[in-house]
């Protein structure tokens, strides 16, 4: 009985982990504004955590710089399966204007498959909510596939 309750509550309340890999802070501010009372993603059950070990959904911002690449790999390895990777903005998707820079190590899909990508520079908070709604469905499918 408790297992069923836990299963249900997992789907209703996915926890987010925000991972900054050399972003310009634009997308980070938009993520924070999603949590504020104005857009209030917590009414859908999203909660920002401080630890990757508690997270279900990882929000990645920024092109992966060479300084942050090792940390990105280490952090993603700490997230328990099933996890959903959401790329926020154009930077993790394709490195954006930093394309070809000596200190930027490629788009995010070199290291991990991206499940949901939100375009925009930065995307509107509403667009992020759209993306998170899609991420929940993917998380649900992944959890069912794991059983």
């Amino acid at each position: 009985m408790f297992k069923k309750l836990i299963e249900k509550s997992f789907e209703k309340s996915p926890w987010l982990f925000h991972l900054n890999t050399g972003s310009c802070n634009g997308c980070d501010i938009e993520i924070v504004s999603v949590i504020t009372p104005r857009y209030d993603a917590e009414r859908m059950g999203f909660k920002l955590t401080g630890s990757p070990r508690h997270a279900d959904i990882i929000l990645v911002t920024g092109p992966i710089t060479s300084q942050s690449r090792d940390r990105l790999i280490r952090t993603l390895a700490q997230v328990p399966d099933p996890k959903v990777v959401v790329s926020i903005g154009s930077c993790p998707r394709s490195t954006n204007v930093f394309n070809g820079s000596y200190s930027v190590e490629g788009p995010l899909d070199k290291y991990v498959p991206i499940d949901v990508s939100i375009a925009g520079c930065p995307p509107k908070p509403e667009a992020i909510i759209d993306g998170l709604a899609k991420a929940i469905e993917i998380l649900r499918e992944k959890r069912r596939a794991m059983k």
Binding site: S90, R93, S94, V116, C121, A127, K134
Partner: peptide
């Protein structure tokens, strides 16, 4: 996925063939 949405392409287009709309629903799988 690589766009900055700076609108320079639309501003410089001599024929107005490019337009940036108000549609922000760009979250895709």
């Amino acid at each position: 996925g690589q766009c900055t949405f700076c609108s320079l392409c639309a501003d410089f287009c001599p024929r107005g063939a490019i337009e940036l709309t108000k549609n922000y629903h760009l979250a895709v799988t």
